[in-house]
Amino acid sequence: MNIEFIEALEQLEKEKGISKDILIDTIEAALVSAYKRNFGSSQNVRIEIDRENGDVKVYSQKKVVEEVDNDFLEISLEEAREFNVNYEVGDVVEFEVTPKNFGRIAAQTAKQVVVQRIREAEREVIYEEFVNRESEIITGIVARISKGIVYVSLGRIEGVLNQTEQIPGETYEIGQRIKSYILEVKKTTKGPQILLSRSHPGLVKRLFELEVPEIYDGVVQIKSIAREAGSRTKIAVHSVDSNVDPIGACVGPKGSRVKNIVDELKEEKIDIIKYSQDPAEFISSSLSPSKVISVEVNEDEKSAKVIVPDYQLSLAIGKEGQNARLAAKLTNWKIDIKSESQAKQD
């Protein structure tokens, strides 16, 4: 430990933002353990590093008592006053006990502490970078696949795409570039963990924001999304400008915008619905591509009775009830669908 070491700490402070004083405090604490491990743990010691030249000194600390029971920890009042007449019972007397070969141990310990703190600081920087990007979309490269979990390289760190967050039926290959939704950023003992999702509705929302300038600019708003990943998504959009068609903006010239999103989601079907503040109108639109004859709403129960043409009933309900289920999620209304002939029988 010397002046070059102190200069190195000052350089670290500038480059990594790690406080020199905090580093030295941490090294001093680590050196106390190192001293006790190498030279006996029976005494109380304090270690001091000179902030200017890096010199390390070890001080044994003894408490002033009337009667000594432990020579390692205590000193009599009479003996203490041989050093300073002002000592009283309860005071602490320090003696320098720096071993001759302690410099080598100090240097090794200091290096370990500095390396650890650099690692912690870098982990903190990565955590801060990604925690502010939760709910955003990120592009990464599939680095490895283990037991069904896909690890995605995001530069300085890998993101984790668990099986529950993958699109059902989607396959991944090493080196493949994929877009994912940052679901959560966690602090762990091994550093930050970035949890990704390809099945979250937020991924579709962010993809539309990337592809549709009107959404990014706020002219077209996404009011709600309902998604069954890998199969179908319904998205309700609204325009704050009467001259801008929200559905047309999302579809894009010759369907190019929505096609790019469908391609990214491996042919997942996307229904773009025009949002309306009128519940009946919104519910009717949400059942697209089915035609609707009438919608009767119950505001108190937030439920709706929908009548569709007989030949449209299976389309309105959808395969295994998917269309009706997504419409209910999209509108947040309970929807009861009946055909025209069923309604007449009621």
Rank of each mutant, 00 (worst) to 15 (best):
R104A: 09
F95W: 11
N70C: 03
Q43D: 06
I273W: 09
D271S: 01
F72H: 14
L265K: 01
V115L: 15
Q221A: 10
E7F: 00
E136T: 15
S256H: 06
T233A: 14
N38D: 09
I126H: 08
V204L: 15
I145M: 10
S231R: 14
S180H: 01
E88I: 13
I215D: 03
I222W: 13
F39N: 07
S303Y: 07
T109K: 10
K344V: 08
E299M: 12
N162R: 13
S199T: 08
V92I: 15
I75C: 06
I261C: 03
E78L: 05
K57R: 15
N260R: 11
S231F: 13
N162M: 09
V262H: 00
H200S: 15
E136W: 00
S19F: 03
L154Y: 05
P279M: 01
Q345A: 14
E281K: 14
S135C: 04
A328L: 05
I178G: 01
E184S: 06
G155D: 04
D245N: 15
G318C: 12
I194G: 07
A236G: 06
S135W: 04
G248R: 10
R119W: 13
L265Q: 08
R206G: 00
D21I: 10
K190D: 07
K63I: 09
L23Q: 11
K190A: 07
S231E: 13
V150E: 02
E134A: 14
E79H: 06
I222Y: 12
S33G: 06
I270T: 09
G218H: 07
I47P: 04
I174N: 11
Q345G: 00
I222A: 04
I49V: 11
E120N: 01
N70L: 06
T164P: 00
A229G: 08
A327P: 15
I317T: 05
K223S: 03
I6M: 04
I283G: 13
V262E: 10
L330F: 09
S314F: 02
L210S: 09
P309A: 03
I261Q: 01
S239T: 04
W333Y: 08
D241C: 05
Q322G: 00
K302R: 15
V93R: 02
K274E: 15
L154F: 04
V68G: 08
V115T: 11
G321F: 07
G255D: 08
P99K: 15
Q112R: 02
Q112W: 03
I24W: 02
D241Q: 03
Q221M: 12
Q11C: 05
N38L: 04
H200F: 09
N2L: 02
L183M: 12
S256V: 13
I22F: 11
K63S: 08
P168Q: 01
I118M: 14
S256Y: 03
D69S: 14
I222T: 04
V219A: 05
N323A: 10
N332A: 13
E15V: 04
A8E: 11
P192R: 00
S239C: 02
V306H: 08
S286M: 12
I261G: 02
F83A: 08
V292L: 02
G202S: 07
V64P: 04
Q176G: 01
S256P: 00
T171D: 13
E173R: 13
Q43I: 09
G40E: 01
N86V: 06
S294A: 12
V114A: 09
V262G: 02
Y216T: 12
S303E: 14
Y87I: 14
